[in-house]
Write a protein that binds this DNA or RNA. Structure first.
Lengths: 126, 126
DNA sequence: CTCTTGTATTGACATCCATCGATTAATGTG
DNA sequence: CACATTAATCGATGGATGTCAATACAAGAG
């Protein structure tokens, strides 16, 4: 299903996700709203365990279920769900239900977009 | 002066700055320490005003003094100093003293390194 | 339907953080 | 030296955040 990504974010329109927020950091002057969204995106990665989750998902070929994450991170299950929710809100990961289990994976365009929000213009200083 | 960058960070060794922390997010599995440093780097950009500061410095050809930043951001002077300290700790900006004034500028390699910590593949959009 | 298992949500709590006022330090000037 | 100006630090405070225990929800199995 090609359009599934559009619906994976449920409540939130794809265009309002922080990962799709604005012009690059080094590009034109940003508005307050753009800066706020970009800050929210960075905030979703501002936690040790969330970075580890993204790294785990990025280096894993298949989606990973919550139970595996709790074991890998050494955290309680509610805490892991909390972090996953933050990453979902940032638009970085997606969720897939398989029976009783919930499998998470990195959105394939997430890291590209994130990198694009930072670097791009390659302003080689003055 | 070519070696000035090495000393601009005073107390902190260049290699310990979050911006020089680790392998890319999508690369190999990260250690706890690497993830911690990378999270600290993102945390330094997880605030609306700090994103605006970086954007201001990135789009400005010359260093900017604190007094200009307080005016641009609409924040008190102690608060701006607080944010600048966080960005310094992340290794993203550098400080230069000119008389009574303190001028800040983006480290020329900061955004490149930041993008490198995220993307790897360097795919220029789809 | 009942029971079990996995996940999400709620509530509480301790800690962290952004902000400002007041003060101190640094740099010049007369 | 005293004085003025700019920036950094200190202390306090209100709000945000990560964590877990307890609970509620979801999806099968019997």
């Amino acid at each position: 299903m090609a359009f599934k990504q559009e619906q994976e974010v449920h409540n939130q329109m794809k265009s309002t996700l922080p990962v799709n927020c604005c012009t690059p950091l080094a590009g034109a002057r940003m508005s307050n709203e753009e800066a706020h969204s970009l800050a929210a995106l960075f905030k979703s990665l501002s936690d040790l365990h969330r970075v580890r989750i993204v790294n785990l998902l990025a280096t894993s070929s298949d989606p990973v279920c919550v139970c595996d994450l709790t074991a890998a991170l050494g955290l309680g299950q509610p805490t892991v769900s909390h972090h996953l929710k933050k990453l979902m809100a940032g638009g970085l990961i997606e969720r897939e239900q398989r029976g009783t289990w919930a499998y998470y994976s990195l959105r394939d365009d997430a890291l590209e977009k994130l990198a694009g929000l930072v670097g791009t213009t390659r302003k080689v200083s003055a």
